[in-house]
Amino acid sequence: MGFNKLIDSLEIAEINISDIPCIEISPPEFKGNIIFYHGWSSRKENQVFRGKILASHGYRVILPDAPYHGQRNKLDFNSGNGEDLLANYFFETLIRSILESKKLIDYIGRDKPIITAGHSMGGFIAAGVFTDNQEISRMININGSSAWLKTRDLWLDEIDFNQPIKDKLVIDNVSYSLKDYDPYYNLDKINDRPILLLHGDADSSVSIEAQKEYYQAAKETYEDEERISLVSYENLNHYIIDKMLAEIINWL
């Protein structure tokens, strides 16, 4: 079947998984499932093209709206208070996404492999969901971070925040420690599962340096180091390029 026919054969539906608005992209037959998370201030619709590419290679793709994004109590990202929004909601969005991830897994089912993937903030989420759920078989992190607190510290050095980004959050009257969910501090939960990290080495939004630290620490936990890869792209800022998509397809 030609590529255009493959694209035309995809079934695309807007669905709600519990209270999570999602787009589901399904080929006629699929060998696995990919939950693909979007970035900060973005929404699920912005990932449909990438979802189609992945689905055309034999994967059912679920694109959820992250908490506070898209259809879910959208924040005013054009208010000029970007630093305050980041300080107040970024890490809460990560924790909330992890807490609700089992709803997505229950919907998908466990009879075929599940992969988490994401770009930018979506990469942070994909790493957190992967670490917290042993049902997830693989993880793809594009221009994100698997070392949350290290990235936070880099941001604090670069950005003049009006308020601190705390180590502990209170969500729905429950206290959560970022360290408890930060993939870097939970390397014992990887259990040799495959990881692909893709990052521009000139990324001015999410520095590759924290991801390098995660990669070096995580690699030491593997019996087979080839199961974890960090691919850097020279002079690339905070973008997804065709070479990254090709790398993902080949890796899968």
Rank of each mutant, 00 (worst) to 15 (best):
N4A: 08
P164N: 12
N191E: 12
F3H: 13
M1S: 13
D224Y: 14
I171W: 09
M121R: 09
R72A: 04
E226H: 14
F3D: 02
S97A: 13
A117W: 12
E234A: 10
D84C: 06
R60Y: 02
K189G: 06
V206I: 09
R72I: 02
E247S: 14
P27I: 00
M244Q: 15
I12W: 02
I15C: 07
F90I: 07
P27Y: 03
D160K: 13
L149Y: 04
D188N: 14
S18T: 08
W251T: 04
N133Q: 11
N46E: 14
H38S: 04
A202Q: 09
K243V: 02
V129R: 08
Y107E: 10
E29M: 06
Y37R: 01
I25D: 10
I240Y: 01
D167A: 11
R138I: 00
E11I: 14
S204T: 13
G58Y: 10
E29W: 00
L99H: 05
I159E: 08
D111P: 12
I249V: 13
M121V: 05
Y215V: 01
S26G: 07
E213A: 12
Y184W: 05
E14Y: 08
D192N: 15
K31G: 12
L10P: 09
D167T: 08
H69T: 03
D65P: 03
E100I: 13
H238G: 01
E158Y: 05
E234W: 05
K103N: 10
D111V: 12
K74R: 15
A202I: 02
K150A: 09
S175Q: 15
K168S: 04
G123A: 09
S146Q: 12
Y181C: 06
Y68K: 13
Q134E: 09
R193F: 09
P194A: 06
R43Q: 13
Q211M: 15
K150E: 14
Y68F: 15
S205M: 04
D19F: 06
K5R: 07
S120V: 01
H57V: 01
W148C: 08
I108F: 08
G128L: 11
P113S: 03
D182L: 11
F91R: 04
D172T: 02
I171H: 07
I20R: 00
R96Y: 02
S175H: 02
L63P: 00
G128F: 06
S9L: 00
G39V: 05
R110T: 12
H119D: 03
S120P: 12
K219R: 11
D201P: 05
D242S: 14
E14I: 05
G123M: 07
I34T: 09
A202H: 11
H238L: 03
C22R: 02
V231S: 08
D153G: 07
I240G: 01
R50V: 02
M244N: 06
N73D: 13
D160G: 05
D172A: 12
N237K: 13
V61A: 13
W251A: 01
N33D: 14
N33P: 04
T151S: 10
W251S: 03
D201F: 05
N133E: 04
H57E: 11
T131W: 10
D182Y: 06
L245Y: 11
G109I: 07
S137V: 00
